[in-house]
Computed example of a mutant assay.
Amino acid sequence: MLDRWTLPLLKRPWRFLATRMAAAGIKANEVTLAGFAIGLLAVPLLATQHYLLALLVITLNRIADGLDGELARLHSSTDHGAFLDIVLDFIFYAAVVLGFALAAPQHNALAACALLFGFMGTGSSFLAFAIMAEKLHLKSLIYQNKGFHYLDGLAEGTETILFFVAFCLLPEHFSLLAWIFAGICYVTTATRVWSGFLTIKSAASRTDATHQCETENQGRDCH
């Protein structure tokens, strides 16, 4: 929900740093992989309850995530780079929740499972829509610089980062915060499924009507 406002604010500093990294010969995929490796350090740090150090590596991972996108656009983005970026992002998100579950299983495990279930809903609806949007040639009017169509909702990247920060600063309240965030994810999943279904249905109907018109009119443009 907040990404449409936070991403434009961050674009200028990301571009400034990315330009200098590009001049040094650093590639987007290298930053993606390095950021992911750093981010995974959060799991043992959280499991051993080093929450502030975990917050540091989480922050570094998110900085890398912003920089790799800008680097990709400077070098001209690729489909395989966008694929790598989004897959590793989802793995990282799940890894952070796993770290909190390991830190205090008796208190955190159930809430962590509920949040991971929410992540499954938001992630699957997000990616499934992206596949169909590509097939139907749908374009996002909000996130035009992304590698594929983003379906927005209450729980996006900014909200995830804010909750991760809260988890690290208030680890004794992880369970409560995780249940709240899980609820936000459930609402996001429901709205994405419904709006995605209607959008795809409408777009597919227009495509079918155009194809039928062109067939009946011997290939003339019917748009």
Rank of each mutant, 00 (worst) to 15 (best):
M1N: 05
M1K: 03
W5A: 13
W5F: 13
L9K: 03
L9V: 15
W14C: 07
R20G: 15
M21N: 10
A22E: 10
A23I: 11
G25C: 11
N29Q: 13
T32C: 13
G35V: 09
I38K: 01
I38V: 15
L40E: 06
P44T: 15
T48A: 12
L52Y: 11
L55Q: 05
I58T: 12
L60M: 12
N61G: 11
A64L: 04
G66P: 12
D68Y: 08
E70P: 02
E70A: 15
L71C: 07
A72T: 05
H75A: 14
T78F: 08
T78M: 05
D79N: 12
H80E: 03
F83A: 07
L84P: 00
F92L: 12
F92D: 08
Y93V: 15
A94P: 00
F100Y: 07
A101S: 10
L102Q: 10
A103T: 05
P105I: 02
H107E: 13
H107W: 01
A112H: 01
A114E: 00
L115P: 10
M120E: 03
M120R: 04
T122V: 14
S124Q: 03
A128D: 02
A128V: 03
A130G: 04
M132R: 15
A133K: 04
H137Q: 14
H137W: 02
K139A: 14
S140E: 01
N145A: 14
K146Y: 10
F148I: 01
F148N: 06
Y150G: 08
L151D: 00
L154D: 00
E156G: 13
G157E: 00
T158E: 00
E159C: 04
A166P: 02
C168I: 07
C168N: 09
L169W: 10
L169H: 08
L170E: 08
L170Q: 12
F174W: 02
I180S: 08
F181V: 04
F181I: 03
A182R: 02
G183N: 05
G183F: 03
I184K: 01
Y186C: 11
V187I: 15
T188N: 05
T189A: 10
V193R: 03
W194P: 00
G196F: 06
G196A: 09
T199M: 11
I200P: 05
A203F: 13
A204H: 14
A204N: 14
A204V: 14
D208A: 14
C213N: 04
N217Y: 03
Q218V: 11
R220D: 07
